[in-house]
């Protein structure tokens, strides 16, 4: 299978921000036995978005390897070498061996596991949606504040938003597999309809509005009923999708809970 490798390598070395970096011991490489042994090899790793690059050294000008962090879990593991703080990136695909990596100390290990666990595109999308929803709520409550004649405060007023977000995030990085698992984590069904924004329907307001070349923020109006209808449609749709998915994918959910 072809890949635009030159562009990928260029991206790896570009000045776009890295999400995490540091030295790790790795047991991958050409001709390595299926069961990792020996001391492995110390490489410089750079996490950019959902891509984990490895380099020969910190100054390396060409990436040695690439792991795309989608549909994977990050688990603590045992290294063949004692005193190493190992973890593995595991893929739920036939014939794909886990990537065994080890940090120098417990703090670096924890930082890497956390960073890798929330590296998926779906997780980033979830966070953006939640922020978008918070901004919408903030705008709405400001509009309500200005129009003091509106007595009814919507249930999703601003002060609740941080709680929604933190819950969403927690689910997001507890299950780093892919976006479909994020919805599943909420099988309890206790979340209000608005939190359906955590869903992976791909028509969030950002997409809708950007697609139409408008401001990605909200319709330029402070009229409550217009805003209500505008966002209500989407929320109904998201909720419907979420309910369907929650019903349809229970078994997968149990699988997630396996240690």
């Amino acid at each position: 299978m072809k890949l635009n490798e030159r562009s990928v390598a260029h991206y790896a070395l570009s000045n776009s921000p890295a999400d995490h970096m540091g030295f790790l011991r790795t047991w991958g490489g050409p001709g390595t036995p299926p069961t990792p042994s020996g001391t492995g090899r110390r490489c410089w790793f750079v996490l950019k978005g959902n891509l984990l690059f490895s380099f020969e050294s910190r100054e390396g000008r060409a990436p040695l390897g690439l792991v795309v962090l989608e549909g994977c879990t990050v688990e603590l593991a045992e290294a063949p070498v004692p005193e190493e703080f190992a973890f593995a990136i595991c893929f739920d695909a036939p014939g794909v061996r886990p990537h065994l990596l080890a940090a120098d100390g417990p703090a670096a290990q924890e930082a890497w596991v956390k960073a890798l666990s929330r590296a998926s595109f779906g997780y980033m999308r979830l966070v953006v949606r939640e922020l978008e929803s918070q901004l919408h709520d903030a705008r709405q409550s400001l509009a309500l504040h200005r129009h003091s004649s509106w007595k009814a405060i919507p249930s999703r007023c601003k002060p609740q938003a941080p709680d929604h977000l933190s819950r969403g995030l927690e689910n997001g990085y507890a299950l780093s597999r892919d976006c479909s698992s994020i919805g599943l984590a909420e099988e309890g069904g206790s979340r209000p309809a608005g939190s359906g924004l955590a869903e992976c329907e791909l028509q969030g307001p950002t997409n809708l509005l950007l697609g139409r070349g408008q401001s990605p923020v909200s319709p330029e109006t402070s009229c409550f009923s217009t805003l209500h209808d505008w966002y209500g449609q989407e929320i109904l749709k998201l909720r419907q999708g979420w309910l369907q998915r929650a019903r349809g994918s229970q078994p997968e959910c149990e699988e997630q809970d396996r240690p």
Partner: peptide, 18 residues
């Protein structure tokens, strides 16, 4: 640059946005 084709193939089987 090394990457595992099987991982990319698995990703290609994920639901598409388009």
């Amino acid at each position: 640059m090394r990457y595992n084709e099987k991982e990319l193939q698995a990703l290609s089987r994920q639901p598409a946005e388009l």
